[in-house]
Computed example of a mutant assay.
Amino acid sequence: MNKHIYIYSPSGAVRDKAAFKRGVTRLKSLGHEVEIDEAALSSHLRFAGDDETRLAAIHRAAASGADVALISRGGYGLSRILPGIHYKAVAKAIDQGMRFVGISDFTAFQSAVLAKTGRVTWAGPGLCEGFGIGGKPNASNVQGAPPQLVPDDIMEACFDDLISGQGEGTGWRQLREPNSPATGAAPAASNEINLIASNVIYTRATASFGINKSVLWGGNLSVLSSLLGTPYFPEVKGGILFLEDVAEHPYRIERMLTQLLHAGVLARQKAVLLGQFTDFKLVPHDRGYKLQTVVNWLRQQIKAPVLTNLPYGHVATKVLLPVGAKTDLMVQGRDALLFWGHA
């Protein structure tokens, strides 16, 4: 289905121009009309242009009439320009059918839009890391030519579902973990009562439960925690919070989760979904402290279920998630399903 996709750069400067070009070529090969913002390849310090340039790019994207406004890449830069965004213009564009899509630093924009307008944006790929770099090598048709990298097929299928209006949910299988309350294969008996009290239907015999019509929100943990205490942090109660991060050691992940914990954010959620936490390196000093340690610790701190292995983050295979949409969560054993209908 041919759609109008607007490419803009609200965060870091595009350094990998080849990935940018590959991404544009890939989207065009899928039949889409691709419009590139005039400042998409701008550079100022580490940013894609100065603050005013990037603000103008956001507003041009909102006014473009495109079906999808897709960021070129993440990095850093959105947090510092949040006060200058015309949220009414963004909300109007969304109301008219535009879908804002991005990842990583884009969490700042998504959180601010949710806090200021209540509108839905989409956590998904960026142009360069999603469509421009790809994941799996595809055998070339030319004898002797090297394999060509192609975008992940699951990511592309989810993107196609989004722009065609057919996306209704996503399912995944959690990591296999020891069957004990400490690691969360099944909540402790005390948690069972609290889960039911929080409108979570939990069946201990089958380790299954369901959560109905809860706001899905979150994104990059580092970015989200940096917004705490600002007008751009969504005050979501009874929500489903999803989190991911990249190049952050588990103790740093725990430290950011602790900040959300002490601020009361985690206690207000019905579930926490942990996506992919990648590109960190453990050291001898850790002495067995690892990401699973953090997961176990988190489950001991909150009453809500903590799920693992959500296929979203700085990885090739990722689903698209509607930030701010009312969502149902169903879990049976290790299998989980998020359903949002036509968000």
Rank of each mutant, 00 (worst) to 15 (best):
5 I>K: 05
13 A>V: 12
18 A>I: 10
20 F>A: 13
25 T>M: 07
37 D>L: 10
40 A>M: 02
49 G>A: 08
50 D>F: 14
50 D>L: 09
51 D>L: 12
64 S>V: 09
69 A>Y: 01
71 I>V: 15
72 S>G: 10
77 G>F: 10
82 L>F: 06
82 L>S: 02
85 I>F: 04
89 A>K: 14
98 M>I: 14
99 R>N: 14
101 V>L: 13
103 I>A: 12
105 D>T: 10
107 T>Y: 08
107 T>V: 08
114 L>P: 03
114 L>F: 05
115 A>M: 02
119 R>V: 11
122 W>A: 03
124 G>P: 01
132 G>I: 12
138 N>H: 14
143 Q>N: 09
148 Q>V: 13
148 Q>H: 08
149 L>V: 02
153 D>Y: 11
159 F>I: 05
172 W>Q: 01
173 R>H: 13
176 R>Q: 14
183 T>F: 12
186 A>G: 03
189 A>S: 06
190 S>I: 13
195 L>S: 04
195 L>I: 02
204 R>P: 05
204 R>N: 08
213 K>G: 08
215 V>T: 15
219 G>S: 07
228 L>H: 01
228 L>S: 02
230 T>N: 04
235 E>Y: 06
248 E>F: 05
250 P>V: 11
250 P>W: 12
254 E>D: 00
257 L>F: 02
262 H>W: 10
265 V>Y: 09
266 L>G: 01
271 A>M: 06
280 F>L: 07
282 L>D: 02
290 K>H: 15
291 L>Y: 14
293 T>E: 01
294 V>A: 08
295 V>C: 05
296 N>F: 11
305 P>A: 04
309 N>V: 03
310 L>I: 04
313 G>S: 08
317 T>G: 09
321 L>Q: 09
328 D>K: 04
329 L>I: 03
337 L>M: 13
338 L>N: 08
